[in-house]
């Protein structure tokens, strides 16, 4: 069994990228005065009717927007925060009418569930967890995983929600002896969970038993990797990582995403593909999202770049608009749209 070694994704020049592959279909202006931090799309049900809604997060305000005709949006709920600012939205797959948010300054201090009272339609927020939280991820099957505490008392906890969004049960996973940076689901394997660690390891848990199955060391060339997508095929584990610390290498350009393959039985692994910036583009990974076989990233240059992970190269580059750098980008979970946000609260919705 041998596998192709790291191949550098093609590096087309900017001019050869198809700018028409992104079509602006709607714009959403958040009038809140504070800095815009995140966006997400989710299903929300009102009066027995489920709609694909958009959630926007500013530092102290999270809003839910429902679609009107002709790609206009109406704000229907707003949750306010007074003491701790919002850091990120944490979507929980398979849950309707509930979204989680992580709050904190530099590190996450709280995770809260945002929902609405079924009696009077008023906005409600429930504190799910507080403390020194290092990483959080919403999982399929209405679950939320988080790691908290310091190295000697690190806790990895899975919370399962009931259909109505209320927290139902809690379970703990065996902690690795190193700080967890990010979590990642393994597509199609509901009982498997991955974590990346500060020591450049990828760990695997069995979520049913809580067992820590394996710790796999990956190439030290890229530190602080974020796990965006993982799937198992033919006994091998394929993982898409992003690298915010990757340095530009003359021959390769700037690697933003990487596909690695791991044999979980032996922990041996190798890079399969590096997804680099096209020639003429500079910058490192700032923030990004992967859905199906498409990866999108905001670069430190303020530009958004998109890769087709199967084709192996960058397919679109979206420069800053109105002289405003992009600050975050998400694939919509409800359709094939790209949600791109700027710090001033403007959200642009593109069809890709």
């Amino acid at each position: 069994h041998s596998i192709e070694q790291t191949k550098v994704a093609d590096l087309p020049t900017c001019d050869s990228l198809n700018p028409g592959s992104l079509q602006l279909i709607s714009k959403l202006k958040n009038p809140s005065g504070s800095c815009s931090v995140d966006v997400s799309a989710m299903w929300w049900e009102r009066a027995g009717f489920k709609e694909p809604c958009i959630i926007t997060a500013c530092e102290y305000v999270v809003s839910l927007w429902r679609p009107l005709d002709t790609w206009q949006w109406e704000k229907i709920y707003t949750w306010h925060f007074t003491e701790v600012p919002v850091l990120q939205i944490v979507p929980v797959p398979d849950v309707c009418n509930l979204v989680c948010v992580a709050l904190g300054s530099l590190e996450i201090r709280e995770i809260r569930a945002l929902l609405c009272s079924s009696e009077d339609e008023s906005e409600k927020q429930v504190l799910l967890k507080s403390g020194n939280i290092k990483a959080v991820l919403g999982l399929t099957g209405r679950r939320l995983v988080s790691s908290s505490g310091t190295l000697c008392d690190q806790q990895v906890e899975i919370m399962t929600f009931a259909e109505d969004g209320r927290s139902k049960e809690k379970q703990f996973l065996m902690p690795p002896e190193e700080t967890i940076l990010t979590f990642g689901e393994v597509q199609g394997m509901q009982e498997a969970l991955l974590g990346t660690t500060i020591m450049n390891n990828i760990v695997i848990w069995n979520l049913k038993t809580g067992q820590l199955l394996k710790k796999m060391h990956i190439d030290d060339s890229y530190q602080a990797s974020v796990c965006h997508k993982a799937y198992s095929e033919m006994g091998l584990l394929f993982v898409v990582l992003s690298h915010s610390c990757a340095k530009e290498r003359e021959a390769l350009g700037s690697p933003v995403f990487q596909l690695i393959v791991i044999n979980p039985k032996t922990t041996l692994n190798v890079g399969v593909m590096l997804y680099c910036l096209p020639q003429g583009q500079a910058g490192r990974f700032l923030e990004g999202d992967v859905k199906d076989h498409f990866a999108a990233a905001v670069l430190t240059s303020g530009t958004i770049a998109i890769w087709d992970l199967l084709l192996g190269h960058c397919t679109a580059v979206l420069p800053p608009i109105s002289d405003q750098n992009w600050s975050f980008v998400k694939w919509s979970g409800t359709d094939s749209h790209l949600l791109a946000g700027q710090k001033d609260g403007n959200i642009f919705i593109y069809r890709y």
Binding site: Q5, Q211, L213, S232, P264, K265, V270
Partner: peptide
């Protein structure tokens, strides 16, 4: 491209690692 040996592969790696971890 050159090959890289990742060692013996098992299609049931998740079940096997779970059994090993239970021992």
């Amino acid at each position: 491209c050159s090959g890289a040996d990742l060692g013996p592969i098992s299609l049931n790696w998740f079940e096997e690692l779970s059994s090993e971890a239970s021992l």
